[in-house]
Design a binder for these strands. Structure first.
Lengths: 375, 375
DNA sequence: GGGAGAAATGAAAGCGCTGTCAATTGGCAA
DNA sequence: TTGCCAATTGACAGCGCTTTCATTTCTCCC
């Protein structure tokens, strides 16, 4: 029997010797050049250099060329700190997400960049790493940078964090979720409603023993689970032994383990709603390993409709959330407020969701295939 | 025949009416409170407040308590711009990666955060979005923030970008790849060598008709392809029709399309080296769709050993790169230089790589199963 | 109890840049 | 040629904070 995974060392190995240090030889940390340096080199005053850089048309083209040359010669880069202090504008939009590396935030961040960068804003991204405490710290750090607006994922800030945001005096957009009591403006969707819809979707297709798996129980995962519970209760379906969760971060392997845990208790599982697509992919692989046909024996639906869902085999059904749209909308609202002082008519904007129906769930028309009971 | 993917609208829809604007009613953008405000409220001088915040032990505990109360009362957050300007220290480490959302950078960024945050540094992350031009801009933007060191993924900066970095006067660590001519310090691995090793691994297992797929032809993908070409040439194996690439970003679906393109030309394909694991996963799904057994008919090996590789079905062999280690090492080097002025003995550190051998490739011992020729 | 030294606090300067307003130059109509 | 306006350019102050140095207050021991 061959090992599942065998590691073969090939490259050089990492050893502590790499860190043997020797006294620095060249502390030539030459001073960064400043506006004054450029001005001296170009033979003009500092103000003129500043203007040549900020408002080129206020400076004669001859001077501008001389200044550009000096800037290039000295590899001059303006100091944002000084600039911000003097001008009271930062052109920075603060963005806080739960994770920099979760695929869910990819489209959202891309939308923010796509919309804000061309308009001359800088996007300052921080990650709360799914921790309320860390989020609070990150909010403070971000405010220290005087962003002109803040776009934050989620609605579950700590009281202190919320207070900081309220007092910041800049527009705050809460995204991803929907709340009745936004700090300022709220652009999102009802995670609870989406969880309900996904579960109802499975119920509508004739399933009764519907499981739920979730990892990293953040507020959004909880809301989806509430939706699941409510849908099951509304349909008078029991959920005993059908739910498996873990506080660990979501991953494909966790998805396999979670469905495994349910199957070990409930071999009669008919359908599974996974709190996110990674879990769904893991569940699909686990079914393949156990020779359980998807969707004939078990239907699987994921959440977020990440890229891979559509091209898995079978393709995975998923609740699609308009993340790019949400990001674009948040960015546009922010720019409108900053630049023309116009605020949206509603403080609360529901971007909705859809269900992408694919091969991992049975279509409603098809007669129910029941999975043979294996002991 | 049922549609591969059917979308079902469920939530509220996004319409332009959301953006109907009305004049802002409350331009109460109240001034942010400053050190002076806190000082006045606490009945002390501004210097004392600054000290209470930066060096608490220099201030009597009674005063400290009063000041903390005032800080809290006013939701005061220090202005980093002013702080940086006055102190000439930013405690910021600039990090530039090719993509914020590619899983490859996840462990790396996590390592940087894990190592630098506890030491009191702020990690400022920028994405070059796989564009040399954008990287150049981002370098300038970053330098404007006066980071105390820069950690940048890749070695292929533009001449101007390189010049900016060289002139910045701060330590620069280039990561991921290895170069003979680092800007300052280089921590990485030979992508070319890794590509060679992966190909050689397949050759060693008796394969001859070995394909290669790659997406988004950045420098690292090129280096891996060079390794593939060299390994094939060394073994005197032809590569005609066995290579498929696309300039699009890497994705699971692209992985399926690329192996599909090869299979359409070369139905006798025996093994495939994918430039990254997403492509490998897509290739695996495409094989499943075409009823091609992995690894019995085609062996697949990926690159980077992302989380899902180990739990796919079959688990996907992959070239494992020590991304967390690389990030940690880069962060430690940076801190050593900044805090005690110690530089590593070598300017160039090879972190190596390994091959994680799994079920998607045939073990060397096993007799070769040849794929039946289907026209 | 007095004085030395330590601890706690404050005053003033200035980081690098930009906004405001003043000064200079050039062009052109009268 | 003169005067006036527009186009350029410069001087100066100050953004909010920290550093340095000076001053005040407190401790402690002879």
């Amino acid at each position: 029997m061959k090992a599942l995974s065998r590691r073969i060392d090939l490259g050089a190995r990492l050893t502590s010797k790499h860190l043997i240090a020797h006294p620095t030889e060249e502390p030539i940390r030459r001073k960064r050049s400043t506006l004054a340096d450029v001005a001296k080199l170009a033979g003009v005053s500092a103000v003129t250099v500043s203007r040549a850089l900020r408002h080129p048309r206020m400076v004669s083209s001859a001077l501008r060329a001389r200044i550009d040359a000096a800037v290039s010669e000295l590899a001059y880069v303006p100091d944002v700190a000084a600039s911000r202090l003097a001008s009271a504008r930062t052109h920075a939009i603060g963005v806080i997400v739960s994770s920099l590396t979760n695929g869910v935030f990819a489209d959202y961040l891309r939308a923010l960049h796509d919309t804000l960068l061309p308009a001359g804003f800088q996007v300052v991204v921080f990650s709360s790493r799914y921790s309320a405490d860390e989020e609070e710290k990150v909010i403070a750090t971000l405010l220290g940078q005087h962003p002109e607006a803040i776009i934050i994922a989620g609605i579950d800030q700590t009281p202190h964090g919320r207070r900081l945001l309220e007092r910041s005096g800049v527009p705050v957009i809460q995204t991803f979720e929907l709340t009745d009591d936004p700090i300022d403006i709220n652009v999102g969707l009802s995670q609870r409603q989406a969880g309900y819809a996904a579960t109802q979707y499975l119920i509508d297709r004739g399933h009764r023993r519907i499981g739920y798996t979730a990892a990293r129980l953040d507020a959004r995962a909880h809301a989806r689970m509430e939706g699941y519970n409510r849908a099951m209760a509304d349909a008078r379906l029991p959920t005993d032994g059908l739910v498996a969760t873990t506080p660990r971060p979501s991953s494909v392997s966790a998805g396999g383990e979670l469905i495994g845990a349910i199957l070990d208790r409930r071999s009669d599982l008919e359908a599974l709603f996974c709190c996110d697509d990674n879990l769904a992919l893991g569940a699909l692989f686990e079914c393949q390993r156990r020779d359980i046909a998807v969707p004939d024996q078990i239907s699987i639906i994921g959440f977020n409709d990440l890229e891979f869902a559509a091209c898995a085999h079978p393709p995975i059904s998923s609740v699609a959330t308009p993340r790019y749209e949400m990001g674009r909308l948040a960015a546009e609202i922010v720019m409108k407020i900053i630049e023309i002082g116009e605020r949206p008519a509603d403080r609360r904007i529901d971007v909705g969701f859809t269900i992408s129906e694919r091969g991992s769930t049975m279509p409603v028309a098809r007669p129910q295939a029941r999975r043979a009971l294996s002991e």
